[in-house]
Design a protein around this nucleic acid. Structure first.
Length: 482
DNA sequence: ATAGCCTTGACT
DNA sequence: AGTCAAGGCTAT
């Protein structure tokens, strides 16, 4: 378990997760994505996606789909304007001061973390990289929804850089840190923000207004249309709802990187203070707390969820948080091929045997139960679209009592249920009872999560759960509505 | 086409 | 003189 402590503070490329080699075209990226971005813009390359324009980009797969890779470059905030039209070498461009501020900010953040020791709660919200100090009630009403995200972007002061923005300088009250993991919908790509500080250094190809009759290059608007429109061309006619769910999924790599950074800071605080090191269990609580934050973020981004009033949103989340946590854990194991290790959200592997020997009876049973369910789901070859449906079925639980809009929640549930049925019949026609098997496994997952919640409550009563506000809030809200 | 290494040159 | 993000070169 010690390996969890060795999370590197070093930043990862937001596009592919490789090691960064410096600031390139607006942000810290790796050497290969730098080169890829340069080639694409300089040579005005156009790519197409053979799949659904949702390819995962990581170090091993980045070569497979240049379309999605370039899309991701833009989404994370790489700047077309930083590619020079005249190909002049050397020297500095106008991004220099921005890089400098970004570096200073990172230093400041580190220093602040060291000062405040483990008491993250005392940190000014704007400097807190993740939401250790947030309660659900503070997150839900204050987080901007996608449409207001657009407004914030559009109204950003012109001196604002994307990096500063991501680091939370422009956060709203309620300790909200908007970051690059929040998927900006394709209608509002970052690059369309009109108030860019820097005039394009590549005006011929990329200035949207100055070249109405340009033949060779695509404009910003063109690009949005050609690069981001949903592909109608699919081999199978999958339920639209399922495709939409997949499109709204969070970027796992970014979540992984955020949580890893958080744990790394925690580790720094540990070593620089006299506070007793966290136990493995304590560390797991921190991971669970952080994961919860991203689960809430995901829920918030669902269009169905946004329709609900905050009161109902809280009831739904209070009801299902542990199921979503367990689903997150199990779906990670399902697609992890090594049977003797557990894959954490941080990307680290933990030896299963050492977990089982270290864990007490209850935790041991839980881990074993999860492994068994994992194995059954692996045999079924559960796919990521089914997992996404699971998340919605768990969140929109029609059995939650005292909802203001009970009927709506029930409606969503049944729609998702129908979409999942249609999906399984469409993709696995030879496997007729797949749908009912999936639902059976969902019930088993629910049972596991109840066990897990009970275990956590017991540990909390013993004072063994570290001060993770979100996790503890959830524990207190334990099934009050069912 | 990719990506690691090299050269360049404004800025400190 | 040193820094470091641009572009360039070239094996793979």
């Amino acid at each position: 378990m010690e390996c969890i402590y060795n999370v590197d503070v070093e930043e990862l490329c937001p596009v592919c997760g490789d090691n960064v080699s410096g600031y390139h075209y607006g942000l810290l990226t790796c050497e290969s994505c730098k080169g890829f971005f340069k080639r694409t813009v300089q040579n005005n390359k156009r790519y197409t996606c053979a799949e659904r324009q949702e390819c995962k980009i990581d170090k091993t797969q980045r070569k497979r789909c240049p379309f999605c890779r370039f899309q991701k470059c833009l989404t994370v905030g790489m700047r077309l304007e930083a590619v020079r039209a005249d190909r002049m070498r050397g020297g500095r461009n106008k991004f220099g001061p921005m890089y400098k501020r970004d570096r200073a900010l990172k230093q400041q953040k580190k220093a602040l973390n060291r000062e405040s020791g483990l008491k993250m709660e005392s940190m000014p919200p704007a400097l807190s990289s993740t939401l250790t100090d947030c309660t659900l009630s503070s997150i839900l009403p204050n987080l901007p929804d996608i449409s207001s995200t657009k407004n914030i972007l559009l109204n950003m002061p012109s001196s604002t850089t994307s990096t500063e923005y991501e680091q939370g300088l422009y956060t709203l009250p309620g300790c909200v840190s908007m970051s690059s993991y929040s998927p900006l919908p394709s209608q509002y790509p970052y690059q369309s923000v009109p108030c860019r500080i820097i005039k394009s250094e590549f005006p011929d190809h990329y200035a949207s207004s100055s070249s109405p009759g340009s033949t060779g290059g695509y404009t910003y608007t063109d690009q949005t249309q050609t690069m981001s429109s949903p592909t109608p061309h699919t081999g199978l006619d999958l339920p639209a709802l399922v495709l939409e769910f997949v499109r709204c999924e969070q970027d796992e790599l970014l979540v992984q990187s955020k949580i890893s950074t958080h744990l790394a800071l925690l580790q720094e605080n540990q070593s620089s203070s006299s506070i007793e090191p966290l136990s493995s269990f304590g560390l797991m609580c921190h991971i669970a707390d952080q994961t919860l934050f991203f689960i809430v973020e995901w829920a918030r981004s669902c269009s169905f969820f946004k329709e609900l009033k905050v009161g109902d949103q809280m009831k739904l989340l209070h009801n299902c948080w542990s199921e979503l946590l367990v689903l997150d854990y199990i779906s990670r194991q399902v697609h992890h091929d090594e049977h003797d290790t557990i894959l954490l959200i941080t990307g680290q592997k933990v030896d299963l045997t050492s977990v089982l020997t270290q864990a007490g009876v209850t935790l041991g049973e839980l881990v074993r139960g999860a492994q068994q369910l994992t194995q059954r789901l692996q045999e079924l070859q559960l796919d990521c679209r089914e997992i996404t449906c699971f998340k919605y079925l768990i969140l929109f639980n029609p059995d939650v009592k005292l909802l203001e809009n009970q009927e709506y929640v029930g409606n969503v549930y049944h729609q998702v249920n129908g979409a999942l049925l249609e999906y399984t019949l469409c993709v696995y026609p030879q496997h007729v009872d797949r749908f009912s098997q999936l639902l059976q496994h969902l019930r088993e997952l629910r049972a596991l999560s109840t066990q897990a919640e009970d275990y956590l409550s017991y540990k909390h009563l013993n004072g063994e759960v570290p001060c993770n506000k979100l996790l503890i809030e959830m524990l207190h809200a334990k099934r009050a509505y069912v």
